[in-house]
Nucleic acid binder design. Structure first.
Length: 263
DNA sequence: AGATTCGGGAAACGGT
DNA sequence: AACCGTTTCCCGAATC
């Protein structure tokens, strides 16, 4: 039974491998390679991938997702010197937000900080939305330590925070469900309910952020792919507590109707 | 084949 | 004191 699922996963992985092998786009930057390979694939594949980008519990204002977004990412990510960039005054906007520190206030949670950083232009070289609508985000390998260090400073830890340690905390979320791991390098996904709360809290809608590429770019209409109808989208997030890792291949090959009973 | 990334046990820690 | 949300350390496995 479980082996069938593994076979399907393996098949899918193989398919991805073949596609990647046939892709002319090769980059030394492993960070962008994955996405740019996706970018050069058949539309059907891209459609399949966008199918996974649904939003389970609420109507997504943008149920379309342009994977071509990745092509607009900076190919050269600048080095940043750590230390000076991440004091709280880095973002004037967030510095002005109510800091939850005073008496009776809860401590800032890691997922809150990450959401905050996602909207901080100064953190754009460390963390970015992969697909904001469904709360998928990823760290940029080159500068992920900067974000971690900022997080550590914000918390006032004794030792400097590292990505490793921060990721450990992130892994704890897979139990409680605030954030789950997506089966892709350095990428995670907010719980939709959490995301909604955070968005309303910070006054952001789920529309494009200042650093996000508009979905409908003139002249690139053919690169915009529509998600499949949402159908019954409760199945995967409903099981986050059972399946801590969100497997892209599994979801892509899974019939939503049987998925619930399959767990 | 070496470097990253991932995953989780276990214990310590600071705040409420 | 007890509990929560990490933080710190560590090690093995998986993936790049």
């Amino acid at each position: 039974m479980g082996s069938l699922e593994n076979d399907i996963n393996q098949d899918f992985q193989d398919a991805i491998d073949v596609i990647q092998r046939h892709s002319q786009i090769r980059h030394h930057d492993t960070e962008n390679k994955y996405y740019e390979n996706l970018d050069s694939q058949q539309s059907s594949v891209r459609h399949a991938i966008s199918y996974y980008q649904f939003t389970p519990h609420f109507e997504p204002p943008g149920s379309t997702y342009d994977w071509n977004e990745s092509s607009s990412w900076p190919h050269v990510i600048p080095d940043v010197s750590l230390g000076s960039l991440c004091s709280t005054e880095t973002s004037a906007f967030y510095a002005s937000l109510p800091q939850r520190h005073g008496k009776g206030r809860k401590k800032l949670r890691l997922y809150e900080y990450l959401h905050e950083a996602l909207h901080d232009d100064n953190m754009g070289d460390s963390i970015q939305w992969t697909d904001r609508g469904s709360g998928v985000f990823h760290f940029i390998s080159k500068n992920k330590e900067k974000l971690a260090e900022c997080w550590g400073q914000r918390k006032g830890n004794r030792k400097t925070m590292t990505y490793q340690k921060m990721a450990r905390a992130l892994r704890n979320y897979s139990r409680t469900g605030e954030i789950v791991k997506v089966r892709r390098k350095l990428t995670y996904q907010f719980n939709p309910a959490i995301l909604q709360r955070l968005s309303s809290l910070s006054g952001y809608s789920s529309g494009p952020s200042s650093r996000e590429i508009p979905l409908h770019q003139p002249g690139s209409a053919e690169h915009v792919y529509y998600s499949s109808p949402l159908q019954d989208c409760h199945y995967w997030y409903g099981q986050y507590s059972y399946q801590t890792e969100y497997d892209l291949a599994t979801v892509l090959t899974m019939d939503p109707k049987t998925a619930v009973s399959a767990q």
